[in-house]
Design a protein around this nucleic acid. Structure first.
Lengths: 238, 238
DNA sequence: TTTAAAATATGAGATTTCTCATATTTCTTT
DNA sequence: AAAGAAATATGAGAAATCTCATATTTTAAA
């Protein structure tokens, strides 16, 4: 049975993910304070961290692990909206707008996550300019990415969107040590849920890319062996 | 020749749009200060207010008029990303993220707009909690709308998206005095650019909706005559 | 007012993508 | 290790949507 484990082993002061996070600019006294206001949890792959319509109790700060944010469409099909990794915050949209969650957060692999009390976080953000600006930037980036996704879904065909998705996975999670294998593993269905297509079409396209020597399928792993061709296939520039 | 006209006739203290804006919670001394930091411009229908890749010089605060925010897709096709109206701010994403604009802002009708100096606005936002929270909410809402648009584009067919688009236009701009005619006029091409379809398909679907007595086409105007059926057609609930 | 240009409308074939069927492979569990 | 379940793979027909062609109507310009 998969289960989350609550603890407080992580220390914000020594947390390496912090330096890439919105908390990068916090003074050290605030870091110590923050450390006392958080609680840490580990989640196993596949576990739901929060879900649609839930009421936010705090801000999730990812120490390590990868997470997908999804919604359920009108016919029950899942849509992947955002991808989250170590150093990211999540759950901030609902928190800042006083809304409920409109996404599900599901662990793509084992994760170590801290949750920061809602009221404390809001207070901290309003009092610390660097944090406030970092949050502005974070939402702005997510909005930009979402709008790029809109253009892609609206104007590109499935083949182009699939190529773009692989590039997005690369941009988000990078490569493994071999510098060519995507450092994230999705099922074909999950890829389809990001690209906005059927699972069969996703499978077919990945096979085609494999046949075209753009990628190499090694089990569940995807190696990008011709990045130029992938970029061209994505029809990115004009 | 269409041309914008710069002036300073509008007064923030008496501006009625302000009460629905992010500046609603500002104390009156700050309103007076804000009034001195802004400059007003009128734009004619069709005019470009800012464009993709431009560097933001300030925050646009809409006094009156309707505006579309668009991007150009890989094959030159326009995509409508957001719709703006009196009381809204725009250009804030690029401003807050220190980025260039990734959208074009084009007047859908004659507009009266104030521009607030970038540095002044950022300063004001960081010093005033109510404003800061209002901005958080504003971006959060735009992100939520964008993500709903993603699900729609990804999972719905063109007919459902068209119905949803009409409901979105209604939610954004409301009805005229007759309580059924959409208070905004788009060309069929613009509707297609929002829905993510071809102009011909947009024309065809509107004709179909007209034939199905869901809407009534009165020249360029669209009257919603069966809201229930439109909601059902949009496949909104599950 | 006439003419030209742009927008709207509609049909029909071409194309893309989906769906369903059915293998095959991989992973889990006993 | 064997069986069952889940994921991946592939084909083929069905359905959705686009594109191109061509009217028709509306708007703008001369």
């Amino acid at each position: 049975m998969k289960a989350s484990r609550v603890h407080n082993d992580l220390n914000c002061a020594t947390c390496t993910s912090r330096h890439q996070s919105v908390f990068a600019g916090l003074p050290s006294d605030k870091i110590i304070e923050l450390n006392n206001q958080k609680s840490c949890t580990t989640y196993k792959k596949g576990q739901v961290i929060f879900s649609e319509n839930g009421i936010p109790i705090g801000l999730f700060c990812i120490n390590s692990g990868k997470i997908k944010l999804t919604t359920t469409g009108p016919d029950g099909k899942e849509q992947i909206l955002r991808l989250v990794k170590g150093g990211d915050i999540m759950g901030y949209r609902a928190l800042l707008s006083g809304d409920r969650y409109h996404c599900n957060a599901v662990a793509l692999e084992d994760c170590s996550i801290c949750i920061i009390d809602k009221a404390y976080f809001l207070d901290l953000a309003l009092q610390n300019q660097a944090l406030c600006i970092a949050i502005f930037k974070k939402i702005s980036e997510d909005l930009k990415k979402a709008e790029e996704h809109i253009v892609s879904l609206s104007q590109k065909n499935v083949r182009e969107r699939m190529a773009e998705a692989l590039l997005f996975f690369k941009a988000t999670y990078g490569f493994e040590a071999d510098n060519s294998t995507l450092a994230v593993q999705f099922s074909r269905e999950e890829i389809a849920d990001f690209v906005g297509t059927s699972t069969e079409s996703a499978i077919r396209l990945l096979s085609e890319f494999n046949g075209d020597k753009i990628i190499e399928l090694v089990g569940k792993k995807i190696r990008i062996i011709n990045l130029d061709k992938l970029v061209k296939t994505a029809n990115l520039y004009y």
